[in-house]
Each structure stands twice: as C-alpha cells, then as structure tokens.
Design a protein around this nucleic acid. Structure first.
Lengths: 355, 355
DNA sequence: TTGAAAGCGCTAACAT
DNA sequence: ATGTTAGCGCTTTCAA
C-alpha cells in the first residue's frame, strides 16, 4: 500500500544486486545477467522467474559496474556552457539533445558560470566520468587546459569558438560576415556614426564581430570613431550603462550595435529610458523581438541547428573504445572538422532607417 | 608541440590506469591511490614521483571504479525538466546548480520533451547511474512510474507539482493564490468578461490556477462565461490561435489571462496582430516583459529561488548510502517536505486598466 | 541451458 | 611508508 516494491517490512537496505535476484530465484548471478540483457542463452522459464524477481525487488542494474567490466561507451555526452539562463545556450542545448537522442545517448549539461577555474574542474570531472564526448562553448580564449580532452574515446567539439592551442573540431557562426552585413546596411542607410558595444577582444566572437564592423566601414570608406566603441564581457547591465553614456555624448551615434543578445537587451532598456529614437541593432536572435516596443535589426543564426551540427560532428568522430590493452587502434578520424554556419539579417518592426 | 602529453609516439592505447602509473613509478598501485587522494600514508618523495607520472600520462582516475569500490555518493544530482528552451526551466536550473555547487555536487540536466515514455526512460537511466538524487518537474499528472525513485540514497523532490500517488517532498508555487489575486484585481478594475487560456485540468498547475480564477469570481459574485475558457497543454501557437478566436467573438472578453509564460507570448502576438486594446495578463514572469510594446500584468515568482529551495530540500534529505549489507539504516528523514513559494503581481508598462 | 572463475579499476583492511 | 589480499557489481570466458 504505502511504498512501492522491494521494501518489504523492516529496515531498508542498500540497493539490491544481481546476487539478491539470483538468490531469490535460485539461479546463478550469471543467469540473471543473461536474462536481463536478453541473451539467448537462458530458458524462457528462468528468464520469466528472473524478471519477476527483478520487478519485485525494484532492481536496477548498476550501469557503472557494467560499464567498468565491458569497457564500452557510457552513452553520455556532455555539453559545457557558460550560463544556463542565456537563452542562446538553452536553444543550443535543444539541438544537441535531439541529435544525442538519435544516437541513444544522454546529454549532461554543465555550466561553468564563465569561470576558468570552474571550467577546469568541470572538464576534469567529465573525464573522470568517462563521458563519450564533450561539446564545449568555451568561456575563455585560451584552451590549453582542454587539451586533455579529445583523447581516444572522448572527442571534443568546440562550438561558437574554434580551438586555440589544441587540435579539435569546431562548429562556429559566421561572426565576421554577419556583423559586416549588418554594419554595411547601416552605413548604406546613411549612418555615419555607429556605436558598438563589443565583446572582449580576447574572445573569438569578440574579435571576429569587430573585424566585421571594421571591414564594413573600410568598404564604404567611412572612418569609425573609436570613442563610440566600448568593450566588455557582455552583460546587459553594463550594456545599459554604456548605451546611456553613448546617448549623452555631445556628438552621439545615430545607431548602436550590441554584439550579443544580452547586450542588446541592455541597450534597449537604455534607449527606452532615454526616450531616444536612435537606431538599434544587435548580434544573436531574440525569440520575442517581434513583441518589443522598439524596432530592432538582428544578425540571427539558428542556435538549434548549431547544436545539432555540433553533436553530429561529435558523433562522427566517436570510435568505440578498445577494451583491453589493444594497441593497434586508429585515431578518432581524419583532420578536425571546422564548420561555419551562415547568419541572416532580420528586422523586427520597421526595417533599418536612415539617421 | 602538436598534441598534449601522454600520447608519446605511435599508437594511442586505451586510457591509462593506476597500474600504468604504478609500473612507471616503480611503486604499488596502492601507493598511487594514496598519493592521488592525499592520503597521509605516503612519503613526499613517492607522492611527487606519482604526480609527475600522472601528469605525464594525462592520467585521470576512473570515478566509476572508485565509486563502485567505496559505495560512496556519486556527487551528481539530476534535474529532469520538460523542455530546456522554456526560460522558466533554465532559470530554475540556475538556482538548482548554485545549491548543488555549494554541496560539491554536479548537476545533470535531462529533458523529457514532456513525453511520458521519455520520462520513464530518463528516470530508469538515472537510477542505473546512481545519482544521489533527482529533482523533477513532472511532465504528467500521474507519478506512479516515479515510485522507484526515492529509495534509500536517492531522494526525489517534485518541483511545481506535488507528488501524486508517491510519497516525496515537493516545492511548489502558490498557483491558486497567485491566480486568485490576479483575477481579483481584474474584476475589481471592472472587468466582467475575462478570457482564460488555461492549462490541462489534469495538471496540478492547470487545476490550481483555474481554482484561483474561479475563486476570485466567486468572491466578487461574478459568474464567468465558460465559452471564454479554453484548455491546452500550453504552447504559444495554440494560445495565439485561441486568443484570436476570443477576440473575434461577438461578445468578446475585455481581458485575457494566459496560464503560463509561453501562452502569454502567444496571446501577445494575437493581440498585436489584431490591433486589439484588450487587457492582457499572465502567469509566470517574463524576463524582458518591460520591453514589450503592450502592457502586461504577470503573476511572478522567483524561478531561481524555486530551484534553490528544491535543491536544499533534496540535500536535506540525503543520507550517505551504506556500503555493505548494512541493515540498521534509517529512512532518509522525517515526513516529506512540502514548501510553497509565494507569488507577486507585477505590472509591466501601465497598471491594470478598467475595460 | 547453466555455472564457476577471473577481472574491469579502484580502495578498505590488514599485513609488513 | 609501502605492499598484499580481497571485493565493489557486473560480464567475459571457459567448462559442465
């Protein structure tokens, strides 16, 4: 009546093992093992008995013990991201999980809070836990601490940022092209003073998106004003303050570009509070941008698809680990993959306006 | 130059074990074990040697083997949610992870895509993987398939929905009170025909929020029109269509309440497209609601904190598993906890208006 | 069809 | 301070 099965009577004990099932059934643990795995070498009679006992005990095989013995894959991959609350990561994770499920693999999502020490710990932990592979959105520009990953049986894929100092596959976004297009449009519309809330130059996305900004200016023969460009790790509070500052300049920009989704939100708040009619644009899509009060032009890409592609690359590179001391094994596969996803400019609300 | 350490020369082999380190160092595996765990019973000399060899081999102890032997906790808890892309879950996960980190525990996030069969599989998998505990936001109203969780050493906490048919702790939101307050305010403002996009009545949140709606009407002596109430699992597309339908009624509502965050988004889109000036309200907070074109009144609660509290409850109920055949162990602890988090009404944009 | 022995990688408990 | 033995829960291998 009260609890489920397996807890018959007095003191709860530790989880039942195969031996318990064997004892209960009157067969050897080996037969239990066979019965549970669907091995043909058991009579239907014993199999039925075993399964009954299993159900009665609420028995669940210990996956670790099995994995230890067989040396097979764990069917777990890990996704390491900076901060879960960023909707980009969530959407990315959705894509990864879809592909993982297709491969009968579970996804373990770990967040580093964009902290290097934390990232290190997480990585070590994942290695110790024998995950079949890792997809990482690196928090830092230097990836040498990730070198230990990517060994045989545990490939790694870098997402949004190519590996730096390590050999590994990567799936990234056309940061340069996307920003170049956006900035080019603004310039073509007549904007001459464009503010930029950029990401740290040490970050790949930071430098690439900035390169796009600079390239667009160069192509249209416009010199940009350094004082309209500020750099940060990229949170919304900072973006809000910084946008406010830009708006108050004696010679303010006629447009502002925010280099990521969170900064776009911050910039929007500053513009709203100031009642300014400055043109606003940003990198990264925002799911509900169509509901915003202000028009917004965004460099978008399919985060979902980025996740899918990353996972596909990961699985392509997986090879079953050798059990014993096997020595003649091949490397994961050929040279690292390096995929680049295209971006697409989307205007929510009105299209880009002249200043 | 090229790769990192441990891959000196020809063919990569399987991961090194303690024996490899021992052989390399000329000590016994036991000393390696001791050195790695910081056990005092090793000379500084050997410890140094061991650590050097470990670094050279890129050796990482196998956490599974260790766990198997010691029978200790795995220091992993799992969070099972419906769909990662829902920002509520992401925010919830942030809170859970914060508390988990404080307990030196990793968080494994698994999504079920709101599918029962999937949920079952995930749960089994987690049991097989010996997680120290599970926090679940149940996808379905019937929780009997979760009965196997919650055994000794692996407690469960239900979040947002109390357990049904199982004994377990839960941390939920004041669904009833929140909706009652919101609806009460609308009625007090003079609204007499209020539309409701409600969740499935089989779901706890669905029935509780509806109870609040009904209670508010009863208290103010207003009869609600059943035809203004529609029921669904709660996605934004459906909410959009349904809101459109409500707006087109010959006797349309003067206000519409959406029973969750996704439906609120859908309703907003419908209202925008229709150019209607209907009053809109919803359950669940929306991070960027302050940037929306339309004013919105929301029943909010702190998802972060809900996550923290759930994790705290989980850890309170954890007890170290007994290693051997220990029999005199106690139950996790006293009776199940049942926490309820308060809600808070927030108006973004203008406050609630009369019809 | 079934079982006994051995061992996956590690560590507790006992030697030395 | 170091090593040996045994065994965690399971499965592979070999024998009956």
């Amino acid at each position: 009546m009260s609890g489920s099965a397996g807890d018959n009577g007095s003191g709860p004990r530790s989880r039942p093992t195969m031996r318990d099932i064997a004892a209960q059934t009157g067969v050897s643990p080996m037969s239990v093992s066979r019965a549970l795995r669907g091995d043909p070498g058991v009579s239907e009679a014993t199999r039925a008995q075993v399964l009954a006992a299993v159900k009665a005990f609420g028995y669940q095989p210990n996956e670790f013990a099995r994995q230890l013995r067989t040396g097979g894959p764990t069917h777990v991959i890990a996704l390491v991201v900076g901060h879960l609350a960023n909707p980009f990561y969530a959407q990315f994770a959705v894509g990864v999980e879809r592909v993982a499920a297709q491969h009968g693999t579970r996804l373990m999502i770990m967040s580093t809070n964009n902290d290097l020490a934390n990232e290190r710990q997480v990585i070590n932990d994942l290695r110790a836990r024998q995950v079949d592979g890792v997809i990482i959105v690196p928090a830092t520009p230097d990836h040498r601490h990730l070198a230990e990953l990517g060994g045989p049986g545990s490939p790694v894929v870098f997402a949004t940022t190519p590996p730096n100092g390590v050999e590994a596959s990567s799936v990234i976004v056309d940061d340069f092209g996307g920003m170049r297009e956006l900035c080019g449009r603004l310039l073509a519309a007549g904007h001459r003073r464009i503010g930029l809330l950029r990401l740290n130059r040490a970050m790949w996305t930071g430098s690439e998106r900035f390169r796009g900004f600079a390239a667009a200016h160069a192509e249209q023969g416009v010199r940009f004003d350094e004082r309209l460009i500020t750099e940060h790790a990229g949170d919304s509070h900072w973006a809000m303050r910084e946008t406010r500052r830009l708006l108050r300049l004696s010679d303010p920009p006629s447009a502002v570009i925010a280099a990521n989704n969170l900064m776009t939100i911050g910039a929007l708040r500053a513009v709203r509070d100031a009642g300014s009619d400055i043109t606003l644009a940003g990198f990264d899509d925002i799911e509900v941008a169509d509901l915003f009060q202000r028009s917004l032009t965004l460099v978008t890409f399919n985060a979902d698809q980025l996740g899918e592609r990353s996972a596909e690359v990961l699985f392509e590179r997986q090879r079953p680990r050798t059990t014993g001391t096997g020595d003649g094994e091949r490397r994961p596969s050929g040279p690292p993959v390096r995929d680049v996803l295209p971006t697409k400019l989307i205007s929510y609300g009105e299209p880009l306006r002249a200043p």
